[in-house]
Design a binder for these strands. Structure first.
Lengths: 177, 177
DNA sequence: TATTGTTATACTCTATAACTATA
DNA sequence: TATAGTTATAGAGTATAACAATA
């Protein structure tokens, strides 16, 4: 499902420049004829929200290119750093990831030596997840990249107060809507 | 790519209740043990933005269930209503949809008799897109559903001023970031 | 040559059912 | 029985290459 497209593929993850919706020139007319009327679309929160989200993810990817981490991978490492010793179900559920889909994701991170799976001694069904030293170093670097390159640009664009307000509204929608 | 999952499939489109990230109870502890620390994640705009977007799309789908329109389909019909007589490339490009992916989408809408493709007399390569009467009636009903059920709830949650400010910030990110 | 619509294709994300090994 | 991790699979969304018809 989508309002429209554009995202960055994981394979092309190096740093891709994304195709995006046509932006009108100042005259409101494009090369060949009259510009299209966006109508109610520009007042529809879901529409602009989706577009903004794609932009932000794309920028996140660019900023994180040196570490080759997707937003999802970043969120997993961050959660593991803060919550060592949790099992797959706990981490996946917290992030809204289906357990089956989490398996391949962990395979990838584990094969890059960023985390380890250990059978729990107390419950041998579950895997205790722990960042490796490399994983801890990576998430530390990643957080710096996000803060200095990504979030800093966002705050610069919006202003610190608006940025803060925006965070609050998004959280409200995410939790109360 | 994702921060985490949860969305509504088009097949299940009737009205689905979505699996979502665990919400903590007021104590900050869940059933089995300590709640997970979200850490920097709750301050990361991309993260909360994505979560909010999923919530909003899910609600959009529920509100639009009587008409069985996805956000993407809604945006196409809306654009066609405002801009009759455009060709596929123009509509697709404006919405950020790849032309190849637009074909199946139009097939679906055309088979539901919501729009028509006509070969342009002036340029026989291109298809002129027009809403049918049913298409116009449908988008009219859809706009009412969105306004009264979907956007109204959002405005109620945020307050009209905040909602307006949010729209502005999202547009800014979508166009200037 | 270039463009429009199209087909074919591939990769990602998401969801569900069902298996296994444990409990 | 129920749960954790897993496999298999299917449906969407998205991206690119290449073709036929037309310009």
């Amino acid at each position: 499902m989508k309002f429209f497209g554009s995202s960055v593929s994981k394979t092309t993850l190096k740093t891709a420049s994304l195709p995006q919706a046509k932006t009108l020139d100042p005259t409101g007319y494009d090369e060949e004829g009259a510009a299209l009327q966006m109508g109610e679309l520009s007042e529809l929160l879901g529409y602009v929200l989706k577009r903004a989200q794609l932009k932000i993810f794309d920028d996140f990817l660019r900023c994180m290119a040196p570490l080759q981490l997707t937003p999802a991978q970043f969120s997993v490492l961050l959660l593991l750093d803060r919550n060592p010793g949790r099992n797959q179900t706990e981490i996946a559920t917290t992030l809204g990831i289906q357990r089956p889909n989490f398996v391949a994701m962990l395979d990838g991170l584990e094969s890059r030596d960023l985390l380890t799976r250990m059978r729990s001694p107390s419950d041998r069904r579950s895997h205790v997840l722990m960042l490796t030293d490399k994983g801890r170093a990576t998430i530390a670097r990643a957080k710096k990249l996000v803060a200095t390159r990504h979030e800093a640009r966002l705050i610069e664009l919006l202003g610190p107060d608006e940025h803060k307000a925006l965070l609050g509204m998004m959280t409200k929608i995410a939790t109360e809507f």
